[in-house]
């Protein structure tokens, strides 16, 4: 079914075959694990092993929700959405200041924020745990919100600085002439203009918080406070593994990230690689 013979690639049957084979292997490697989890979440495992195949069932989903899985879902949404909103707000102003003002030590400030992006959180778990435990801040969603804000902020500033450079400074200058304050400029002129960039930044931040495990593990031990990744992993029992529950829980934990990724992938890529590709 080739409509444009001119565009037809040179016929190299071996190379073509290799590419199709490579594509098949690539597709299998990328999709198979997710496919099996999704499929498994709708099957009753004991039956499927015995008979080789089994009908569809919602048993696993009913089971995890009867065990209180929705608490983790709610906790995760609460903590991650609030942290993302906070991080975006403070990052927008910081990014604006970095891209529009010149002051001594600006390079240092930007470097410090960039350093935060590469910072190994594992070395902060002891001090943060001790400081929080002393002040009764463990097992608190408010602490998690602040920590996740701190986790998300450096990269958000980096992304937003990138988006802000695409907006001409003459706009700001015109607004200043009209007597607008800098804060007004950010909230009323800049924000609507970089909305797409801000949405991409927020999405990325939300995904970072959504899949965070280590800090949640360190600071949350109360069952009613746990976030999704912690709650999900509990279905690996001491001796037995509840695969059905794990798969249903996994499907629910991945759904929001998948839905967010699809529309935003192009924007994310350009934001991520802006430092490298010039």
């Amino acid at each position: 079914m080739v409509d444009h013979p001119a565009k037809k690639p040179p016929s190299r049957p071996i190379e073509g075959g290799l590419i199709v084979l490579a594509f098949a292997l690539f597709a299998l490697f990328m999709v198979a694990p997710a496919y099996y989890v999704f499929k498994g979440s709708f099957q009753s495992l004991s039956i499927s092993i015995a008979s080789g195949s089994a009908g569809w069932t919602l048993k696993n989903y009913f089971y995890i929700f009867s065990e209180g899985y929705h608490i983790y879902v709610i906790n995760s949404f609460l903590v991650c959405l609030t942290a993302t909103a906070l991080a975006c707000a403070i990052s927008l102003f910081a990014a604006y200041a970095l891209s529009r003002f010149r002051f001594r030590g600006r390079g240092l400030v930007f470097g410090a924020i960039m350093g935060g992006q590469l910072f190994p959180w594992i070395i902060l778990i002891n001090p943060i745990f001790i400081l929080f435990a002393r002040n009764g801040l463990v097992n608190s969603h408010l602490s998690m919100i602040f920590i996740y804000t701190a986790v998300i902020t450096p990269f958000s500033v980096y992304l937003l600085v990138g988006y802000l450079t695409t907006i001409p400074k003459s706009l700001d200058e015109a607004a200043i002439m009209d007597g607008a304050s800098r804060f007004k400029i950010v909230t009323q002129i800049i924000m609507p203009l970089i909305m797409p960039g801000l949405v991409a930044t927020a999405t990325y931040g939300f995904l970072q918080a959504w899949s965070e495990y280590l800090l949640a593990l360190t600071l949350l031990s109360d069952e009613s406070k746990k976030t999704l990744p912690l709650g999900l992993y509990q279905y690996f029992g001491e001796d037995t593994v509840n695969w059905g529950a794990l798969m249903a829980g996994s499907a629910i934990a991945t759904l929001p990230t998948l839905l967010l990724f699809l529309p935003l992938q192009k924007k994310l890529v350009s934001g991520l690689t802006q430092g490298a590709v010039k």
Binding site: A34, S211, L232, S250
Partner: peptide, 15 residues
């Protein structure tokens, strides 16, 4: 390509 990318690490390990 998006499938593994959108999968949180915890879910990747489970899968």
């Amino acid at each position: 390509l998006l499938v593994p990318w959108a999968t949180p690490p915890v879910v990747s390990v489970i899968a």
